Simulated scan of single mutants.
Amino acid sequence: MTDSLSLPHAAPPAPAGAATGADYAQFLQQHLPQQSFNVVRYELPGESVWLKKAGPPIAAWRYRALAVAARVLDVPVLQPVINPGGREALATEVRRLRDLHARGLRVPQVLASNPDGFLMRHLGKPGMPSPSLSDEIEAAARAAPQETLPLWQQGFAAMQLVHARGTCLSQAFARNMVRCPDGVIGYIDFEDDPLATLPPALCIVKDALCYAHSTALFLRNAGTLEAARTQWHSWLAQADPAVQSAMDRTVQQMRWVARLPDSRKLGRDVLRLRAMHGLLQK
């Protein structure tokens, strides 16, 4: 998890010395019933951990509008990946974190778990920042535009690394990528599993669109959108034909976005869509 999250912190007593699996399991069992918030960070000797408890279930009807839109617009990549919430979402996140860790990807390590919660190690180091990539790119776009493209490239490469390892992210927004103190990109937030619902090619496209949507406006503001577009299409030209086909169809269905007014009065969401369209078009 990132240091930038506005979540409550706690500093309970912890066993001295290196913690064992039994210590982590005992910590989870002790603190889970007492925790009021869904996610809380705790400081242990020499490390920070996050305890996440199961939230309330999420009604499936909330996803129906998006499912209808996917059918009407004939854009399969819009098909929703349902996050059921509750224990099921928690179990999915634990499973996915362990799978990604086993593939050599930088994710929070699961230290202990049970059906109602799990304990994971913080991606950063005590006393050292580990900001989200979104925060870093946005800050660079404002203060150091020349740094925006290298940061974007690092996140784009990190997304491709996940695909090269035979899996996908859940929501590949830049806010769910963390720049660890050693400079490596880590990944967070895995309460759903797109591969359980969508073909691998659509999962890759969904990841890429999430990343584009969350970064394109920063690129445009920094004057680096065109350079990023060149790299985007270089990646797409080497992608699997199924990925190319799904991406082409999605871009075609997004042609209406170019007709949206380029005005701040319509809000940041419209500007994000326009910038995203600018990144994707040939």
Rank of each mutant, 00 (worst) to 15 (best):
M1S: 12
T2I: 09
L5S: 14
L5P: 04
S6V: 14
P8M: 06
H9S: 15
H9C: 10
A11G: 14
P12T: 07
P12I: 01
P13K: 03
A14V: 02
A25Q: 11
A25K: 03
H31L: 11
Q34E: 11
S36N: 12
S36W: 01
N38V: 09
E43L: 03
E43M: 02
L44H: 06
L44P: 06
P45H: 03
G46S: 12
W50P: 07
W50Y: 13
K53W: 05
P56A: 15
I58E: 14
A59K: 10
A59Q: 13
A59R: 11
W61F: 14
Y63L: 10
A65F: 10
L66I: 12
L66C: 07
A69F: 09
R71I: 10
L73I: 08
D74H: 05
V75S: 01
P76N: 00
V77L: 01
V77E: 00
I82W: 04
G85M: 03
G86N: 05
R87L: 05
L90P: 13
R96G: 13
R96F: 02
A102C: 06
R106T: 15
P108G: 11
Q109H: 05
Q109D: 14
R121G: 14
R121C: 11
L123Q: 08
K125G: 04
M128G: 03
P129T: 07
S130W: 00
S130Y: 00
P131H: 09
S132H: 04
S134C: 05
A139V: 03
A140R: 11
A141G: 11
A143F: 11
A143E: 08
A144E: 13
Q146T: 14
Q146C: 08
T148I: 04
A157W: 02
A158I: 07
H163E: 07
H163V: 07
R165N: 08
T167G: 09
T167A: 09
A174P: 07
C180S: 07
C180G: 05
C180Y: 00
G183R: 06
V184Y: 02
Y187A: 04
D189G: 02
D189M: 04
F190D: 02
F190K: 03
E191H: 05
D192G: 02
P199F: 08
P199R: 06
A201Q: 03
L202D: 15
L202E: 13
C203L: 01
K206Y: 06
Y211I: 00
H213S: 11
T215E: 15
L219T: 07
L219I: 04
N221F: 00
N221I: 01
G223T: 10
A227F: 03
A228L: 11
S234G: 14
S234M: 14
W235D: 08
Q238Y: 04
V243R: 03
M247V: 13
M247T: 15
D248A: 15
R249H: 13
Q252L: 11
Q253A: 15
Q253V: 12
R255H: 15
R255Y: 06
V257L: 01
P261T: 10
R268S: 12
D269Q: 10
V270G: 08
V270C: 09
L273A: 13
A275S: 15
M276G: 13
M276K: 13
G278C: 07
